[in-house]
Design a protein around this nucleic acid. Sequence first.
DNA 1: ATCCCGAGGG
DNA 2: CCCTCTGGAT
Length: 217
Amino acid sequence: MRRAPRTVAEKKRIAEVVLVALQQEYPDAHCELDHRNAFELLCATILSAQCTDVRVNMVTPALFAAYPDAAALANAKQEDVEEIVRTTGFFRSKAKNLIAMAGALMDNHNGEVPRTIDELVALAGVGRKTANVILGNAFDINEGIVVDTHVQRLSRRFGLTREADAVAIERALMPLFPRDKWALLSHLLIWHGRRVCDARKPRCGECVVRDICPSAE
DNA sequence: ATCCCGAGGG
DNA sequence: CCCTCTGGAT
């Protein structure tokens, strides 16, 4: 096992190698939540909490067919939404949040999805992680870095941070990567986390950055 | 810190 | 069985 990076320069070196290698490995890395617009991405991302994107994609076609926009979703019956999103887990909270979120879009944003962190985070079921997903993927605004379970795990394994808190990890990552790569970075780490750097049993033998990884075996 | 909650893998 | 999956609200 290699020693963990200590200085900022060492961390930047690892960050650069990771970015280059993973871009090479996953040239098609992108958001895997199916959506056609910001509203759909917002709904899908709310549903993605503690749930695989594959499963979210199984329920969103029915959700978007029944409720194509904020106006429709705002007037939905919670029971009906619960039935559609049930298999994503936390279905009562998610259904309630989706309807409340749509109501807020109608009341405060003319039915549109807002484009600032503060306005997004004020919506039901939307935290900083979800807000960053919307800004980065629907609006191409690199205001922050999406720190989900994969980004958190890989950042720590690479030795880029020892923090456990998502916001602290986001602050640690920002100076290590070019701002215009922030959205891409999250997708690369998520793709690599799903395919190789698994939470339980990472497949270091198949990892393209094992040479610079302090956690490689 | 705890709750919300379902599904799939090992 | 236990852990994990693009978390958020209390």
